[in-house]
């Protein structure tokens, strides 16, 4: 419990840093996106005739900067993979923290590369580009799947049995606090996350999960109104109750989707990693060729 508190403080600091980074990064990005809208919205054939072409083109001072910084971020993303795979580095921060940093680079980096390309992608580098897009989008998907697997703060998966124990503990807690019977609780949970049958197929299960998550706010809203009316409780009391019940419902769904999630996560790796490798290889070639022909940016 002590160590958990310490870890919680470190994570919060990283969160602050990341929030600041995200704010700064998006602000800068939006600035260039807005100021360069006219150029970026110009057709590819007309872009060379645009006044901003000299600076915003891929080899331009700003466009090249996007490429260099974006590429650097894409390379920095590999640090997460290294950290994950090399045992000697296991003590170097929590893997989840590395993942957050990885995700930050995985979001900002491709966005910068998109500006670097000035929305002109053709030839071999287009393969890298679209691979990057695939990796980034699959990364978002992976993050979603990742979140469906309960983990410790350190990022390690929680054992299934432990999960069930946690589920029971939560059910007991709810009963103790709110005197809700298990059957009644099960009914409430189903109104938030309707049960999914993994046996109907992984794709169906995955889409159902996303669908349910999308409807979760609406369902929660309706449930809150229902409970306020039925149990004759205040809004705050029902809200506190729903926080715990939603945790319980989420945990319950994760337990029920345990196998399906793990299967999906396995297939996700099959998509995410190859595209990442293709992206890196072609990106490397692209960089090498660019450097070879003299595009050093400021260096």
């Amino acid at each position: 419990m002590k160590s958990s508190t310490t870890e919680s403080r470190k994570t919060s600091l990283l969160d602050v840093i990341l929030i600041i980074l995200y704010l700064v990064s998006f602000s800068i990005y939006v600035y260039f996106l807005i100021t360069g809208t006219d150029f970026y919205s110009t057709s590819l054939r007309e872009q060379p005739h645009h006044p901003d072409y000299r600076s915003l083109r891929p080899a331009g001072m700003i466009g090249h900067a996007f490429g260099v910084i974006g590429s650097a971020m894409m390379i920095f993303m590999l640090l997460y993979s290294i950290r994950k795979r090399i045992r000697r580095l296991q003590n170097l921060g929590y893997l989840s923290s590395w993942l957050r940093v990885h995700i930050y680079f995985g979001i900002i980096g491709p966005l910068l590369i998109i500006l670097h390309s000035s929305f002109k992608v053709q030839g071999l580098i287009a393969v890298s580009f679209w691979s990057m897009i695939a990796v980034a989008l699959s990364g978002i998907l992976g993050r979603y799947l990742y979140k469906q697997i309960p983990r410790t703060i350190a990022g390690q998966e929680i054992d299934f049995k432990e999960l069930e124990q946690m589920n029971q503990n939560l059910a007991q807690e709810i009963y103790n606090k709110f005197r809700i019977e298990p059957k009644q609780l099960e009914s409430i949970e189903a109104s938030i996350f309707p049960p999914i049958r993994p046996e109907k197929g992984l794709i169906f299960a995955f889409l159902s999960m996303i669908f349910n998550d999308a409807l979760k706010p609406i369902r929660s809203y309706r449930l809150r109104k229902h409970l306020i009316k039925k149990l004759n409780l205040s809004f705050q009391e029902v809200s506190q109750m729903l926080i715990t019940i939603k945790r319980k419902a989420m945990l319950q769904r994760r337990i029920s989707m345990w196998n399906a999630i793990h299967q999906l996560f396995h297939y996700w790796h099959v998509i995410h990693k190859p595209f990442a490798i293709i992206m890196y290889i072609i990106m490397l070639i692209h960089i090498l060729v660019a450097v070879y022909v003299g595009y050093f940016w400021i260096f």
Partner: peptide, 17 residues
């Protein structure tokens, strides 16, 4: 797989256009 893919697309695709 990536190498083969790259090889198959050809170095000619290194040209930006």
């Amino acid at each position: 797989f990536a190498l083969l893919s790259f090889w198959s697309t050809g170095f000619s695709q290194l040209s930006p256009g």
